[in-house]
Design a protein around this nucleic acid. Structure first.
Lengths: 114, 114
DNA sequence: TTGACAGGCAACTAAATAGTTGCCTATACT
DNA sequence: AGTATAGGCAACTATTTAGTTGCCTGTCAA
């Protein structure tokens, strides 16, 4: 029920993307893919203080959010960063809040002081 | 144990902010505060298909993420949008991924095709 | 062709989330 | 004073999440 349009090609839901970003471990994985994309599972496990299975599950979440795309190469699985979903949430959920930023801050300050 | 620096004044953790954003209901609350800040709890309950208590809990999470700041006025509680945490995560977690966006996309495309 | 390497799957547990309901307190209105 | 309004607190439930362990499969290399 409520299948999330597997995200393989289109953009994932904002829910999935924010949820994927809401974990320091997953953000670390993204950061490392940003530096160098195309890493194997085992490479990505390095330095993560958890089992390989745990990392796999995090990668699954990242793939469901379409933030990571993977490809099998022989017995290896290579993981690539896909920046599109981040771009999408930035447009819808970040920039609109930055636009009104100064106004919001002024209003907030007024109310907290006055 | 791991107390999260209650966020009252400083900027909240990225975890708390992303987690707060990872729910459509909470994002809706933020959207409405963006249009008009300084709303009461009951105002914010309107149109949310859940009990007042549920909304209260969502607002607590938003406050813990420092995305919302509240102030008692008589028997009313007014809620204000605070745009700072969004600005912070944009700087650390959004823009860096947008910078390399075209490069990442080219790399991704190459790998998926080749 | 045998072993080592890379990864996948399933079952389980512990903890966090999202929501409910019932009742209580404080402030405002008449 | 008495009632309606605005919100708070506590207890409880169901679901989701994050992690573990054990074992299995497919691929490469000597």
């Amino acid at each position: 029920m409520g299948r999330r349009s597997t995200a393989a090609s289109g953009s994932a839901t904002a829910d999935a993307v924010f949820k994927a970003l809401a974990d320091a471990g997953r953000r670390r994985l993204l950061d490392r893919l940003r530096v160098k994309s195309g890493r194997t599972l085992n490479e990505l496990c390095e330095g993560m203080r958890m089992s390989r299975q745990a990392v796999t599950k995090h990668l699954v979440q990242l793939e469901e959010a379409d933030l990571v795309v993977s490809r099998r190469m022989g017995r290896k699985k290579l993981h690539y960063l896909n920046p599109v979903p981040i771009h999408d949430i930035a447009r819808r959920w970040i920039r609109p809040f930055e636009s009104g930023r100064l106004a919001a801050l002024r209003e907030l300050k007024d109310q907290l002081e006055g």
